[in-house]
Each structure stands twice: as C-alpha cells, then as structure tokens.
C-alpha cells in the first residue's frame, strides 16, 4: 500500500509538471519560482533541523561501542571502535560518514534447524554506498550546468565517469549505477518480508522520487533530447540570481527540475535529513570516556544533597545520647564499648 501510494504521488508530480508546462505554459513557475523556493526551503529547513538538534540536551552518555575501551595501560585500547578522545571520535565519524562502517556490520538472522545463526549481509551496505557516491558524482557533474566557465574538477569527473565512451552523448556510468542501486534498495523493501512490514510511504516515496529523477535525467540525456544550450542559459541564470526562461526547452526538462525541486523541498521534513543527522548522532559522536569525565544531564535540577557529615552534625547530640555511634568527636572509647556490651547483655 505504502509503495503504491508513493508511486502514485510521484506520478502525480510528473503529471503536474507536464500539465503545468504543456497545458498552462507555466515555464517560469516550474523553471524559476519552484526551484528557488525549494532550494531556500532546503537550506533553511536543514539548518533549522541541525540547530534544533544542537539545542537538544543529551541526557545520557550513550556512545555505541564495539571494542575495548580505554583502560589500564597493558590492556590494548581499540581507538576506533571505542574512542576516548575527541580526535578518535573525529576519526570514527569520518570513517562512518565516508565508508558507512556501521552498516557494514549488518547481519542477517536465519534459522539453522533449531538454532538461530547470524550471517553476514553486505548487499545493503554495497547498494547504499554505491547509491550515495554515484548520487554525489551525479550532483557534482551537474555543476557544468550551473557554472560558466566550468571548473576543471567537473570536467575531470565527467571524463572519468564517461571513459567507457559508449554512445553519444557519452554514457555516464554513475547515472546507470544510481538507477540500479536505487532499484535494488526498492526491491529489497518489497522482497524481504520483515523489511516490507516496517516500510512506510516515507520510505518508498524518496526511492520512487529518486528513481524518477534518475530516469528523467537519463531519458533527457540519451533519448528525448533537450536543447542543452537553452537549458544551461536557464540554469546558470538561476545560479547567477538573474533568472531567464528561454523558449523551446522540452517538457521533460521541467519534469526533471520539478522532481528535483520536490526532493530539495522534501529533504528537511523527511528521513533524508540524515545528511545532517549523522553528524549529530549521540551514539556516534560521543567519546566513550564516562569513566574519566562525568557526564551531567543538562536538565538535571540542582539536587539538594544532605551528606552524612551534615546529618551527623545536625543530630550528633541526639545520636550520642541514645548511643548511636558517630564518626566525628565520638565520646570516649571505653564508655562506648562498655555501654554497648551492657546493653547487649541486658537484652539477652
């Protein structure tokens, strides 16, 4: 159901753009106004979310670790899996963000006779990392449409991406890989019953949206071509904040840019905001130093403490008078023991 609903929403978005451009000739709306609104929403929303997380106190010290914590000097400390200092946390975060190490530990639970066994399951990690990196490269490649002159690193990435020299325009590997990876991530949700059970429209919608973005992009580049010079006039206009809407750009371009705008605008409101969230995950970004540094819950009120010393000070006379032992200025040792022995004898 979730999948069908999300698919329907993406199809509706495509139809809205198609009708808006073909029927109502709202090129300026779909080419300029909506993209600007989406990008502004994206930046404000993302910063808002991150600042809000930053303001949220972390009540407990909860780094998730999977290695020996820093201890006695002759016990080998696992710096990456159980970081004790800021530097080690930084290294762990860098590797987490760039290599998805925690996902690499993904396991698959299976039954083997009566026993439960855990097997390695790397496919999710592979599809995930391939998807993220190809999306990054696709994003960087798009800079050729937003910069004039085009910086050399964009050309370099483009030439490496297209080095297979298949067809014209050159086939970009990342485009195909992105679509394949996102398709795998979708099929995984459909085919694994447990994953399908927990999948919601919020999981399917970004997948369908990205699938549609990749598909329209590939269609536009290789099949239903648009006038790239006019497209670049529009896109550089957006980047230069002096938008122009040239005539005669195919509708597929407006569909593509409308879907991308939707993705940008949807970003801060959805789980896609893990882009910023990964950096603010307490289970990742805290050092496992709770035996060295005391973590105080920021919302703790000042606890009124009545220590034993104070207690004794307050009730010393009364305590002595009924024979309760006191630590400070106790009455003479002999009397006390005698009294105590007498008392015990008397009771017996």
């Amino acid at each position: 159901m979730g999948a069908l609903f999300s698919f329907g929403v993406v199809i509706a978005l495509v139809i809205i753009a198609l009708v808006g451009v073909k029927g109502a000739h709202l090129q300026a709306l779909f080419g300029v106004v909506i993209p600007y609104a989406a990008v502004v929403t994206f930046f404000i929303g993302l910063i808002y979310r991150v600042v809000k997380w930053g303001k949220s106190p972390v009540p407990f010290h909860i780094p998730t670790t999977c290695g020996q914590q820093k201890s006695l000097p002759w016990i080998k400390h696992n710096k990456l899996e159980s970081p004790a200092t800021g530097k080690e946390v930084f290294l762990r975060m860098v590797l987490e963000v760039l290599l998805f190490r925690s996902l690499f530990r993904n396991l698959k639970m299976q039954r083997s006779g009566d026993r439960v066994v855990y097997g390695s399951a790397k496919w999710l990690w592979l599809a995930g990392i391939v998807f993220h990196y190809s999306f990054l490269i696709v994003l960087i490649r798009h800079l050729r449409l937003f910069t004039n002159p085009v910086p050399s690193f964009v050309s370099l990435i483009e030439s490496v991406d297209g080095f297979l020299q298949i067809g014209v325009p050159n086939l970009m590997m990342t485009g195909v890989v992105l679509l394949a990876a996102v398709t795998y991530l979708f099929l995984r949700r459909i085919y694994i019953p447990q994953v399908r059970y927990i999948s919601l429209p919020a999981d399917y919608f970004p997948l369908f949206l990205i699938m549609a973005i990749a598909a329209t992009g590939i269609l536009m580049r290789y099949f239903i071509r648009v006038d790239i010079v006019k497209v670049k006039e529009l896109t550089t206009g957006l980047a230069r904040l002096s938008p122009t809407v040239p005539d005669g750009i195919g509708s597929i371009f407006y569909i593509h840019i409308f879907l991308v705008s939707t993705l940008f605008a949807y970003f801060p409101f959805s789980k896609l905001v893990h882009l910023g969230g990964i950096f603010l995950s307490p289970t990742r970004n805290l050092a496992n130093n709770s035996r060295m540094v005391r973590h105080v819950n920021p919302w703790n009120y000042d606890v009124k403490v009545h220590t034993y010393e104070e207690y004794e000070e307050e009730f010393r006379d009364k305590m002595i008078s009924v024979g309760i032992p006191v630590e400070k200025n106790p009455p003479a040792e002999e009397n006390k023991t005698e009294e105590a022995s007498e008392e015990s004898e008397g009771k017996e």
Partner: peptide, 16 residues
C-alpha cells in the same frame, strides 16, 4: 553547497 552561487560572481557569462 552554495558553490554554484558564488563561483560565477565576477565571471563573464559568455554565451555561445
């Protein structure tokens, strides 16, 4: 993220 917005500043937008 805002690279395309400031990269073009001061560069002539030469059209083909």
């Amino acid at each position: 993220a805002t690279f395309p917005f400031y990269y073009n500043i001061g560069k002539a937008n030469v059209k083909p």
